[in-house]
Amino acid sequence: MRHERRIQVGPVGFRIGSDWAAPLAALDRLYAGYPEPAIADFTVRLEAPRPWRRWLRPKVHIGGDYMLPDAAPLSLAHGLLAAEMGMNLQMALGQRRYLLLHASGVEKGGRALLMTGLSGAGKSTLAALLGECGWRLLGDEFALVDCDSGALHPFPRAVSLKNAAVDLFDDVDPGRLGPLLADTPKGTIRHLRPNDDAIARMEETAMPALLLFPRFGHAAEIREVGQGEAFVRLTQASTNYVALEERGFEALARLIRTVPVRAVDYPDTESAVEAVERLCEDLA
């Protein structure tokens, strides 16, 4: 393809090709300092749906090794988002080496905290906030569980801040922020590059010590979650649990049986950070 950029994130290498220069230039700035893989695990393509679409009201079609047949194209102004979605799609549909959980993760002192829940539950924002105050960000979107050891492999992609969460990161180094993307299908989005520590240590695994199901916008409450319920919710949060067969089964069962599990409701982000830190001290 006309333009190409390679990015290594944790154990996964991406090759991103594009019909236009702009999306890859934005990707370059956002992923400054990331290694480049010699051999890519996955290929992402940002393509013009029709040849003339490259110039006339350009639309970006997200292609690659793995695709959704009905994925709607994005406007070229949102090309960076298209690249991010393309990488997510490869992981969600193609990852077979690690058990992939739709979960965020942070680590301190070798002990990892996993957070999972429905979209909008705040797991991504929470992980990003913790990543700015003494925790190491492992990933805001996907947690990669090693089926043999149970360890988490960091996957510190750029954090996708949405809508109100964008304002919470006003005071970070502006060089770590991507462009403000308004009116995307998901609202306003701005990407945040994890801090240098998270990138430098992207090959350093961590053992899970606590699993949380956070929920934003509810009165503060902490509940225990039964193992059966936790197991079911994690299978629903995994895109490759079924494909990994018995390895995935054993990995998930071990996780559920070895770490405490809690559901955490919280009214706002400040109290959430506090509550989570306290829980970690008590349980992890």
């Binding site: 193992q227 059966g228 197991f231 079924v242 067969e245 018995e246 089964f249 069962a253």
Partner: peptide, 22 residues
């Protein structure tokens, strides 16, 4: 089958189908 007992329920991994049953 691989059976793992949790609190109150059992997980069964069925090797012929690759399916998990609770």
């Amino acid at each position: 089958r691989r059976l793992i007992a949790l609190d109150g329920v059992a997980l069964i991994f069925h090797r012929l189908s690759g399916q998990t049953h609770i």
